[in-house]
Amino acid sequence: MIKRYFVLFILLLLGMMLLQVVQSYHEHTRLGSLATRYVGEGPKELGAANIVTAVVVTYRGLDTLGEVTVLFISAAGVGLLLRRRKEEAPGEPSDLRTPASELVRTAMDLLFPMVLLLGIYIFINGHLTPGGGFQGGAVMASGVMLLFLALPQAPVSHTLLSLTESLSGFGYVLIGVLGVLLAGGFLDNRIMGLGRYGTLFSAGAIPLIYILIGLKVGTELSSVLERFRR
């Protein structure tokens, strides 16, 4: 009980500190210098209509490569922690579960391809509309989640998942290196023509990079979900 009051006291002090942050907060009325540079020059320089995508994929492309690496390492960590013993047959414990209802299974048949398609649509249009590789990959993984809810025993090809993941990761780094050789630096998107501004085939290598990131994130999250299925 004394611990509870102590924690409450600490949080109260922290809350008072944060209250001063809120009180001294003033909403910005115009963009800072960095943002002005990105918004003003970004569309001309990189050809991407979505400035957030331009920042994520090109201006801060190295951060995104690090982010993809962190996601890869955490997927590998989950795989290491939840690896199956040889003796325990996969699927034996889940036989005790009640099977998914007719409703879920029928909905899965109808929705699974559509969810995958929506994920692909989101990452292909990442340079034009809200969305991108990470969002599209997460939508694809939610389709896989629906598959596991409807059919807990659904067979998943590990070879296909890890092959897609490794190849798209390799392709991402390869495009980055091509940027050094053909354009201004690592992960520069101007290795191919910028195309007509605002169309699907524009913004240089950004759609290509986002397709690879989308595939990588989608397969990584699917394999994480597969590990949690026991």
């Binding site: 910005h28 963009l31 800072g32 960095l34 943002a35 990105y38 918004v39 400035i51 957030v52 331009a54 920042v55 994520v56 801060r60």
Partner: peptide, 8 residues
């Protein structure tokens, strides 16, 4: 527009 950097 709003600042794109925090969103990224």
């Amino acid at each position: 527009v709003v600042d794109p950097v925090p969103s990224a």
